[in-house]
Amino acid sequence: MVMESFKGFFKKVFSGVFKNKKDVKLGFYGPPNAGKTSLANRICKDFTGEEMGSVSKVPHETRHVQFKEKVEISYKGKTMMFKMIDTPGITTRVDYEEFLKYKVKKGDAKARAKEATQGIIESIKWLDDMDVVVVVLDSTENPYNQVNITIVGNLVARKIPVLVLANKSDLKKADIKGIQEAFPEYPVIGISAKYGKNLDEFYEHVFKLAKRVK
C-alpha cells in the first residue's frame, strides 16, 4: 500500500516535470521510392503496433505528408518520444506517363501526377518544422542526384541535424560506400527497411541527434 502511494507520487512528479518537453519531430525525406514509408512503417509497427502508410512499387505512393504522434522509441534502456513525419518523395520531374508503365489507367495516372506535384510542394513547406531529418536514399541508385544534394544543403542551411540512410542494403546492387563518399560530412548508415537490417545503429544515431534538439 505504501509502495503503491510512493509509485503514484513519483509518477505524478516526474510526469509533471517532463510534460512540457516537446516530442522530437523526426522527418523522413528523400527521392521517391527510396523507402521512406517502409522505414517509417517498420519503426511505427515495432513501437506502436500500427503502420503509417501504404507502400507501392509505383512511384509517388505517398502524396501527402503523414504523421504519427507519440511514438515512444526505446533503445538500450533509453526512451524518447517522437512525432514521426513521413513526406512525399521530392523530385524535379513528374510525368504521368511513367505511371502507365505500372499499368495505372491514364486518368488515374494524371490524377496521381497532380497529387504528386502538390505533395512535393507540401514536403518542402514542412522542412522548416523538423527537429531531425533522416534523408532516405536508395543505395542502388546514383547518390549524386541534385535533389539529394539540395535537400541536404537546405537542412544544413537551416541547422537541422541530418542523418543519411543508404536503404535497400539487402540488394546486390547496393553501394553504401558510394553514398558515404557522396556525403562525407554526414553520418551515413546502410540499412534495409524491408528486413529491419541495421536498425540498432540507426536508432543510436537518431537518439544522438535528437538529444541535440531536446
Binding site: 501526377a113 506535384t117 512535393i120 518542402i124 522542412l127 544543403g153
Partner: peptide
C-alpha cells in the same frame, strides 16, 4: 543558386506542371 533557391526552383517547377 543558393540552397533555398534550388528548393524554391523545385517548388515552382512543381507548381507549373499541369
Amino acid at each position: 543558386l543558393r540552397p533555398e533557391e534550388e528548393l524554391r526552383l523545385t517548388e515552382d517547377t512543381m507548381a507549373m506542371i499541369g
